[in-house]
Every structure is written in C-alpha cells, then in structure tokens.
Design a protein around this nucleic acid. Structure first.
Lengths: 335, 335
DNA sequence: TTGTAGGCGTTATCAT
DNA sequence: ATGATAACGCCTACAA
C-alpha cells in the first residue's frame, strides 16, 4: 500500500505538502495539488485511516447500536443514518445488543477501543445501568439516542411520540364506530410500549368509553394457548369490536387468531397495529397501522450528532417526531 | 484515556513489559503481570486499537457486506458471523450494498482504508465488475463469500444448495399429490434464483410431469394486476394445484392473491416457499418452506475466514450447505 | 506556499 | 524476564 511518503518521493514534494492536499487544500497551490493528485492516482494511494486517527484523534468512525438489525424499524433508522453520515465520509459500525445489557456494554467498550467519534444508539430492553454510557459522554464523545432513551440527564435524543401514535390509532377505531376496544400490550419493561398503553387508555377516557382491566392483555408466542384466551375473552365480552396492538407483528398474530376463530376483519372486529412494517401491506387484510418515521428518525439523529461532532461545545436537544396514521383494510369502517 | 505509558509510569515497569502483558503473556512473570493488570484496572486502561493496528498491521476488524440488513436471511448470517468473530475479539463492520454495485465498491474502499483484516461478503445483484474484489484478494486480505458468489477463480465461499432446495420443495408438492405445479420465479439476474428455477424444472422432469412456459412466471408488486394475471392463468389451467415460490415473501403475496380469489390453501392449491423467514410461522395458513441455514452459513463463513486469517497461506475452499424442508400448513396433503 | 521535525500509542527488535 | 528504542503513516506547529 502506497503512503504519502511514496507520493512525496514521486513528486519531490515534502510529506507536509502532500498531507495538506488531502486536508487543508486551501494552503496549497493548484499546481502542486494536481501533481499530488496525479501521483496519488498513479500509486493507487489509499489514506491510512488508522494513522490519521491516531495522529488526529479523530477516527471518522461512528458507532451505532440497535437491539436487532433484523427489524424493520431499526434497519430503517440505520438507512437514514447511513444517508447522512456516508456523505460526510464517516464510517459506520453497526452493533446489535440483542436486547442484552452485557452485549450492549461490550459494543460500547469496542467503540471506545476503536476511538469512535460519536455514538448513535437505542437502549436495550434490559439495560438499567447507564454508567458506561455516561462515562463515554463524560469523555466528550457525543452520543445521540433514538427511539429508546435512557433516563439520564443531558441526553440528546430523537424519539417518536408513541403516546400520540397510540392515541390516534385508538381514536381512529372510535371514529370508525368501535364501542369496545381492547389493547394487546407489549413488554412493560420497554417504556415506549407503556406510553402506547397510556395513549390507548387516554383516548378511550377522552371519548368517555369505559375501560376495564380485561381490556389490556399480554399475549405469548403459543398461538393455540392465546387463541383460547381470546376465545374466552370474546365470549365474556361479545361486543368487542376493535383491537389496538402494540406492534404490527402482534397484529399479524392477532389476525391469525381471529382467522382461526372465524371472526371477520374488519366487519366484526377492526384491528390496528403500530410500526408500519413492510408486511402490513402484503397481508390479507392489509393492516392499518401507525408509521414510525424510522428513516426520518435516523436522518435527524445523525444530523444531531454531526452538529455535536463539529462543535467543540456539545449541545443537548430532544426531538419528538409525530407518528402518522396509515389506514388500510383491517379498519375499514363497516358502514 | 490512559495509555500503556501511564501504566508504565505507575508501575515503574518499561513500556515493553506492559505491552507484553496484553499480548505474549508467556514472556512475563506472574508477579509483574498482576501488577500491570492492577494498574490497568486502576487507570481504566483501554487499549488503543488504532495505534496497535498501525504498528502491527492487524486491525482486528472484519468487514461484512450484505445487500440488505433488513432481511431475515442476511441478518441470520450476520448473527452467525458475530458469534464466531466476537469470541476472537474481532470487530465487525457491517455495510449494506442495497444491491448497488457503486455502494458495494464504496464499502470495499472504506474497508481498505480501515485496513480490515478480512472480508465476508455476499455480492449485490447488480455487480458485474469484480476487479476491486480481486485487487483486495491480491493484497492477501482473505475474502470469503457467502450465498452469492462472484464468478472468479480462487474464491472461498459458503453457499446453499439452492437447486436441491427447490428440488425437494417441488418433490414435496408432488409427493403430496400435486399434478400441475407452477413456479413464481425470482429476478433472473440473481444466480441463486435461477438455480431454484432449475431445481423446480428438474424435479418435474424427474417425475415425468410435463412443463410449459406458462408454468413459470414473474410477478410484480402491484397486487391487483397480479391477481388478474393469476386469475386468467387459473382459468386457462383449472387443474393447477401447487405453487412453488422462489421466496417466502413471494409466497405471502401469492397467499393474499389466493385469498382474494377465494382459493383454499392447501385444499385447492398447495403453496411452498423458500427461506423459512420468521413470519412463515405466523401467517394463516403457516407457510411450508425450505430452510436456508442462514446462521450456520455465517458460522462457517466466519470460521473459514478465521483459518485464512491465522495462516499465512490462503486456502480456498467451497462449502455447500444442504437446505432442509419445513412442512407447515400450506402444503398439508389433502387426503 | 512549502519544508522540518516531533509525536499520536503501540509493537517488535535488540540488547541486558 | 525486562528495558531501550525505532518504526508504523499521518498531522501540525513552527520555521523558512
């Protein structure tokens, strides 16, 4: 691999001048610049990031941690991040926490060893100890959280208004004539799922619909067991006519159960999800849902990070995105 | 950030000795080793990978390129890769080509600048020029391809026997009594999709089933247009009783169309896919499919790379995995 | 506008 | 078993 030393030899210029061509082009004459660039092409010069990073203290690497890459939402965020950062010649390292605090820590350690210039992350479900994150932030490495944020001060973040999303989804069912809506809730360890539950509850309250404990339920992964649970629930409350699921996968699951129970969607029960995952468009019926603005979230988080990368002074800001209602077939009004 | 210099000062030992503790522990006494480790903990020492990489020429970074991370198959492969490499203290950089040759090249350039020790990749659909890849291989950087391999010599690879997978899927339909099976084919630019088509054709031939041009079709993304196409096909050939889709997503799409046309699955038409994507278990009916052994593919590819990372001499080998039939509800034999 | 030289943190070669 | 020192490739005062 050719180095600037080789270019220096070939052109007869000093190392400093060659180096400047690849950095502060302002301080170098056009003629020498061209000469250097020509030599670089000739030698197929590739800058050695390691050396540059070591010397400058800037690695041009951004670490990204998501719970799972095989998730429409997070991969959408990553696409947004890539769009912004690769234009600025940043390299992106993606790590998965797989919802494990230990793996998340390991990824963060790895980032520190790699001298990342910044971190973009979504906290794992399990994480309760934020000391390592705070240590990183203390070292003036900018960190921006997206979607799932830790409960610490001075954290920059981009999140979705999950409460609002749940509210508009529930309101949509009410507007469509639903009189008894139930909610399939998500893991209560995840704060965004709790906010969705609250949005659901408040939408019902605001519309003067009564709500009982039975109206919020958690399901497992055993479809026959859950089919039984729902069958009994529907027998107890035959007027249930709407379901708001905390996520699209849960909705797909629910739709399968309703199919098994031979309940027509949306004629008997209307169903709405959350996430706007690709498959919601390819199911039968197509699932109404709430769009999470994943790509936009990635764009904004990356932009927020970039600002803090340039500035010496780190500015903390919180941005909240508004979700959008996506109406498809699972909630067509029966009239 | 503390460096070995700080540890050296604190312990009174030389830089060399301290460095040795973190590498060839064999050449250092246990007493000093403990002293160094204690000091390291005290100072919260983090080795600086950049410096180590610069000096040693080994970055301990492996570059991984996949077309898309939001894809069950590729994310499964990545999980397999992670399992092997993170144990060996390698850092993994994941890049997406988004099926673009230009982006793939950009990622490879990025890898070279980062001085990656090895590359694991699946070629994009678009890629026809392998010169950059060959250049990298020429620089003695080991490269292992998985799933989609380039048509170049001396390439190490781990692939699935797509032909066999298609064959057993088709054979399964035949064994279930299907007399007229059609195939929803994938993009012919992707060689694995072509091999699936061939496996389909050969399975039919081997079972003395006739096959016409109409039996292999490509669909788009416009469900109403495609519904019409299939409707006409079913009118022309009312005895069609089996469909083999080149992928699970295509099957989900087909199932929706069959639902619209009110064709019962598997009673009237049996459907089998390819991929064993998560959702195949959560649809109604659950989709029979072919498992692609994604995690195992990642494990094997990473192990193959590791071998070439250690050895000075690069050994090229090709490994072919056998797919497994997964029978679910969409192909239950009607009798 | 260009050149000189020191150092980023580590490893590796000598020598002790 | 340990220490001194040069070098990896690059950046950046400082000098010219």
């Amino acid at each position: 691999m050719a180095s600037i030393k080789d270019i220096s030899k070939l052109t007869g210029l000093s190392l400093a001048t060659v180096s400047r061509v690849f950095n502060n082009s302002s301080l170098v004459s056009d003629k020498t610049k061209q000469k250097v660039l020509k030599a670089a092409k000739e030698l197929d010069y590739q800058p050695n990031m390691m050396a540059a990073a070591l010397r400058s203290g800037k690695s041009k690497i951004i670490g990204v941690i998501v719970p799972e890459i095989n998730n429409h939402f997070f991969s959408g965020v990553i696409n947004g991040i890539e769009k912004i950062l690769s234009d600025q010649n940043y390299h992106i390292i993606i790590s998965q926490s797989h919802e494990s605090e230990a793996l998340e820590k390991k990824a963060l350690q790895s980032f520190m060893q790699l001298n990342v210039d910044g971190v973009l992350m979504s906290i794992s479900k399990e994480t309760t100890d934020f000391s390592l994150i705070q240590k990183i932030m203390g070292q003036k490495i900018p960190v921006v959280f997206f979607d799932r944020t830790p409960s610490i001060d001075h954290a920059s973040s981009v999140v979705l208004d999950d409460y609002k999303g749940a509210f508009i989804a529930t309101q949509h069912l009410i507007d469509n004539g639903c009189k008894h809506i139930i909610h399939i809730a998500g893991d209560s360890k995840v704060s965004i799922f709790n906010r969705r539950r609250e949005g659901f509850i408040d939408a019902l309250k605001e519309n003067n619909q009564i709500i009982s404990e039975d109206d919020i339920l958690l399901l497992g992964t055993d479809i026959s067991a859950d089919t039984l649970i729902l069958k009994e629930l529907f027998q107890k409350y035959p007027l249930i006519d709407g379901i708001f699921g905390y996520g699209d996968e849960a909705c797909l699951y629910i739709i399968n159960i309703l199919n098994i129970l031979e309940i027509a969607i949306p004629q008997q029960i209307q169903v709405i999800g959350f996430g706007n995952i690709d498959f919601t468009e390819h199911t039968s019926p197509k699932i109404s849902t709430v769009d999470q603005k994943c790509t936009q979230m990635g764009l904004l988080a990356a932009e927020m990070l970039l600002k803090n990368l340039d500035n010496e002074q780190i500015i903390h800001s919180q941005q909240v995105l508004s979700p959008a209602l996506i109406v498809r077939e699972s909630t067509k009004s029966p009239n």
